[in-house]
């Protein structure tokens, strides 16, 4: 699927650089002098469950504090979308988007990605399926345009069609000033793979570095 770039100006993001990160959780040294360098604006983290992907995303977004770090991007303004559904169930999808992203419903309807959620966005969140809630959350994160967007398993509960529908918008977001870092198990996201630096955790602790499987084309 081709990426349609909405703007003629491609804003460069800062990529991602982490130097000397150390973090201990529940007595386990998860990261020790961990370093990661990528000039890409779209980064994919792969690895088995429990290898530290979510912990790294929480550290980068400032929700966990490392014991020591030499350099890490600022967490100010960054946005983290967890695996768990975080829509407020008593609000509609539209309210969840407008109240948190601080935009009007008109701006929501004008976004090109709106067609993917228009069928169910006016339902209360508790009435939506898990896949529909995930689509609304991704829409909200994308339309918010933070400087750093961290996504933990964003394609959970989504079928192949929806993954392929959402992926170009994430790619486009990464080309317009946002560094997107996501952890992912799915192999269907060909568009993402092609456009990203892909790193893989080996599952051993403490994590000192992670292998780069492929670089952004």
């Amino acid at each position: 699927m081709a990426v349609s770039i909405q703007s003629c100006i491609i804003l460069t993001s800062e990529g991602l650089q982490v130097v000397g990160l150390s973090y201990i959780r529940d007595g386990v040294q998860v990261f020790k002098d961990f370093s990661l360098q990528s000039a890409a604006s779209l980064i994919v983290l792969r690895g088995a469950s429990g290898c530290g992907k979510t912990t790294l995303l929480k550290l980068l977004s400032g929700h966990l504090q490392p014991q020591r770090v030499e350099y890490m991007p600022s967490a100010k303004g960054s946005c983290l979308v967890l695996q768990e559904d975080s829509l407020l169930p008593w609000m509609t999808g539209m309210e969840n988007i407008c109240k948190f992203a601080k935009i009007s419903s008109c701006e929501v309807c004008q976004h090109p990605m709106y067609k993917l959620i228009s069928r169910f966005v006016d339902k209360k969140a508790y009435q939506m399926s898990y896949g529909q809630r995930r689509m609304v959350e991704l829409f909200r994160a994308i339309i918010h345009r933070p400087p750093y967007l961290y996504l933990d398993e964003p394609f959970n509960f989504l079928d192949e069609i929806n993954i392929n529908a959402v992926a170009p918008f994430l790619v486009e977001l990464s080309l317009t000033g946002t560094t997107v870092v996501l952890s992912n198990h799915h192999k269907e996201d060909i568009e993402i793979q092609r456009s990203a630096d892909v790193f893989k955790f080996d599952g051993k602790f403490p994590v000192n570095s992670i292998d780069c499987l492929s670089r952004q084309v």
Partner: peptide, 17 residues
């Protein structure tokens, strides 16, 4: 935790909601 992360991600003070 997921709600704290949600409010922090969108820079909203939960006491105002």
């Amino acid at each position: 935790e997921k709600d704290r992360i949600l409010f922090k991600s969108f820079d909203i003070d939960p006491t105002t909601f």
